[in-house]
């Protein structure tokens, strides 16, 4: 394995960003209440490591539960929608309308139904992330090459056969691709809900810190959130690569 500069690029860019940030804060002596320098953020992160860990964990598991629900439900609904044109035509406007509703507006309703806590966060994460999965799976199914379908149908294949042999394998790259979008959205959903109504989680922590004027801690919360997001995205990207390598042949041949 050879060492390439390209592989170090993500680290260089990330570190460069923080260095630039630090420099700007020092040169213009920006008030840490407006924009804390990275050094302050990191020291806050170390000082409040305990609460950060605990709340990060809460956010992580609520996000993941919501995300997994979205995966299951999204896959199922995507298959149903992609299966039949009538269902597709019927459900699509409803889904688009549903997706257009800002999820922030739904949180108060969820709180009335389920009370303050993890459940609204899970449901918000679920609501915000299932849509891209449904759309992608349905698209994968709906774009089966007509010739390929003809080949099978002329042999007497049923609709189920066509779906099992072509539709579903064909939709898998779309599905795994959509997971990368869905997982980041799930974090957004969970944190939005935590910010509005929760007793734990990074969103809750940041709201609390904000009302105590602890800006470095707020930013430390954002940082933790970003790290979780990148981590889960990487897991989804890895899954995508493992499960549907055939769809990424250009990088495999390179």
């Amino acid at each position: 394995m050879t060492f390439r500069t390209e592989d170090t690029a993500p680290w260089i860019f990330t570190i460069g960003l923080f260095v630039f940030w630090e420099a700007v804060c020092r040169i213009f002596s920006v008030d840490s209440f407006i924009l804390p320098a990275p050094s302050e953020i990191f020291s806050a992160a170390v000082r409040y490591a305990g609460p950060l860990w605990r709340n990060s964990f809460v956010t992580l598991w609520t996000t993941l539960v919501g995300f997994l629900l979205a995966v299951g439900f999204g896959l199922l609904l995507g298959l149903v929608v992609g299966w039949s044109r009538t269902i597709y035509r019927g459900l699509y406007p409803v889904m688009i309308g549903f997706n257009s509703i800002p999820k922030v507006a739904v949180v108060p309703i969820l709180v009335v139904w389920f009370g303050v806590g993890e459940v609204p966060a899970i449901i918000t994460a679920f609501l915000i992330s299932f849509f891209p999965i449904v759309v992608n799976v349905a698209t994968g199914l709906a774009t089966i090459e007509p010739e390929m379908e003809d080949v099978l149908r002329a042999l007497g294949a049923s609709k189920l056969d066509v779906m099992l042999k072509i539709g579903i394998p064909r939709a898998m790259p779309y599905f795994f691709g959509s997971l990368k979008v869905a997982i980041t959205l799930a974090f957004v959903g969970a944190v939005v809900s935590e910010t509005l109504a929760a007793n734990a989680g990074l969103g809750h922590l940041m709201t609390q810190a904000g009302s105590n004027f602890q800006m470095p801690l707020v930013f430390a919360g954002l940082l933790a959130l970003a790290i979780e997001g990148i981590g889960m995205y990487a897991v989804c990207a890895w899954l995508e690569y493992r499960m549907t390598g055939w769809a990424h042949r250009s990088t495999m041949n390179a």
Partner: peptide, 13 residues
């Protein structure tokens, strides 16, 4: 019947 088309339509997976 067996069928073949202009496009080979092989399943890439």
């Amino acid at each position: 019947a067996g069928m073949a088309f202009q496009n080979a339509n092989m399943l890439p997976w």
